[in-house]
């Protein structure tokens, strides 16, 4: 029943797509998924003049919000920050009468250059991905959204050579379907450090 399905919005941010090896195919997979509205932010707003009304309307129309991006300096590419600064207005996303995002689900789908070992207290990045994305987690919290653990591909620079891309795309497809059909174990999914380890265990029958 398509009416029962959750609507998913993917906001994709990648400023140099001709060099993208992982994010671009991930985005293509999102575009091909029937329950997903996939937006390429850099394509839509090449001059960074984000249409606030249009973006807020999009948020209202969807149940699941996904940021799809490569990790740039432990954060999102600039346009996604611009998007947050402009779209998540007082009175819309938070504050008095700002309840538009209440109850929606929020997820970051991230690729990181460093290995999983690097994103640990002992590693050279010193923090886990989940820790580094705390600003977004708190944004979700303030706006009343359910925050899921990030869906991460580590060592993304060598993923093509090591033939790990297709499996990652496949997991994303399953994840999107589970989100759309509301068959994801949300409670566990929000407590994990990253979403991908044993992802299939999170799907309810």
């Amino acid at each position: 029943m398509s009416e029962d399905k959750k609507k998913i919005l993917v906001l994709f941010a990648h400023p140099s797509q001709e060099r993208s090896e992982v994010n671009k195919p991930l985005f293509t997979a999102c575009q091909q998924h029937g329950d997903v509205t996939a937006i390429d932010l850099y394509r839509e707003y090449p001059t960074f003049h984000i249409d606030i009304d249009k973006e807020q309307q999009r948020l209202i129309e969807h149940d699941v919000i996904i940021f799809l991006f490569p990790l740039y300096w432990y954060s999102t590419p600039a346009i996604l920050k611009q998007w947050q600064d402009l779209v998540l207005e007082y009175g819309f996303a938070y504050g008095a009468n700002g309840h538009a995002l209440q109850g929606k689900t929020f997820l970051c789908a991230v690729t990181a250059g460093g290995s999983e070992a690097a994103y640990q207290k002992e590693g050279y990045n010193h923090f886990s991905i989940r820790e580094l994305l705390h600003p977004l987690e708190q944004t979700a919290s303030l706006t009343g959204m359910i925050y899921l653990a990030p869906f991460v591909l580590f060592s993304a620079r060598s993923a093509v050579e090591e033939d790990r891309v297709n499996a990652h795309i496949e997991s994303l497809r399953h994840l999107l379907t589970a989100l759309a059909n509301d068959t994801l174990d949300v409670e566990t999914a929000s407590s994990l450090p990253v979403l991908n380890t044993n992802l299939s265990n999170l799907f309810n029958a």
Binding site: I52, L86, Y90, Y94, G95, A96
Partner: peptide
């Protein structure tokens, strides 16, 4: 003026009331 509008001066009080 709309872009980057800061929340109202007393917004924290209102948030708590909220």
């Amino acid at each position: 003026e709309r872009g980057w509008t800061p929340p109202p001066k007393d917004y924290e009080k209102r948030m708590n009331r909220d």
